[in-house]
Design a protein around this nucleic acid. Structure first.
Lengths: 143, 143
DNA sequence: AAGTAATTGTTGTTATAGCAACTATCGAGA
DNA sequence: TCTCGATAGTTGCTATAACAACAATTACTT
């Protein structure tokens, strides 16, 4: 059974992800915020004081990526980092005033983005989509 | 309506894509082939002699990515590149013997990968998944 | 208490991914 | 034919993404 190029669902998922990233990137350009940097900020806007290690777990990313993105966010002045007294190995991330102010402007953009993505898709369809993606994740992680 | 982090379908798609990439990367490691390099090879195994521009269109990628990946594949000895006489700006990619032989070993791995990804998902569900992803692609490209 | 394990973060490397600016070539119109 | 615009690739840059190797710190074990 020779599969053709477009038969692979993984390729379709990959292309969709690239399109989504390109779109959100253009939306965030005005805020001097890259897409993955925004994910860290989204978590901090919910509750700051998270360590890089906690961010790596929540975002399911390598700690090296979190370290570099955190460093960039610090350079941009949206956060500052501090070692907690209890464990001087860890680095906690805190929002600066600039970072807090940014949230008030970016969160509406993120929600607008989500509305556009989900336009014409019902709640049931969204749930089904999430279920199938979860199934695929399980399939590849069982290996 | 304040959305929480895990409510964004785009994040779920992104995570799934990363998991898929990580998985296929591990499968292709033995063949000295990176995931996106493999996509180029997949197209060439179907029919070689494509130009970099044609590959960029088919893979919906920036021409710079294709140029660099093609260069890497050439260094690895899987392809060679030649300017056609009709248009000396273009670069056509052709399989070497090593590249052809590689296909015989990698294509079964790719199909096995696809079987694992789709395990426990029916044809109807797969079609529905593709339909929803297509809808999302349309939604963000209409902007 | 001392030595070893494990944990947390950083740096270096490779591979995408896309934008801007550039070169070389081709094509179309005056 | 000459100019100019379009096309095809390349190089430089920034931003992910993951792995290996490393340093600093903490926790565990005896």
């Amino acid at each position: 059974m020779k599969l053709s190029f477009q038969d692979y669902i993984s390729i379709k998922i990959h292309q969709t992800d690239l399109n989504l990233t390109k779109f959100i990137k253009s939306k965030l350009e005005d805020f001097n915020l890259a897409p993955e940097q925004n994910l860290i900020m989204m978590l901090l806007w919910e509750k700051d004081g998270l360590t890089q290690n906690q961010l790596a777990e929540k975002l399911d990313k390598d700690k090296t990526n979190i370290a570099r993105m955190s460093s960039n966010l610090e350079k941009k002045g949206y956060i500052y980092r501090a070692h907690p007294k209890e464990d001087r190995r860890s680095l906690m991330l805190f929002l600066t005033d600039s970072g807090k102010e940014l949230g008030e402007r970016v969160i509406p953009v993120a929600e607008e983005f989500n509305d556009i993505v989900c336009k014409g898709i019902s709640s049931d369809e969204l749930i089904e989509l999430e279920r199938l993606l979860t199934k695929i994740n399980q399939n590849v992680q069982e290996q």
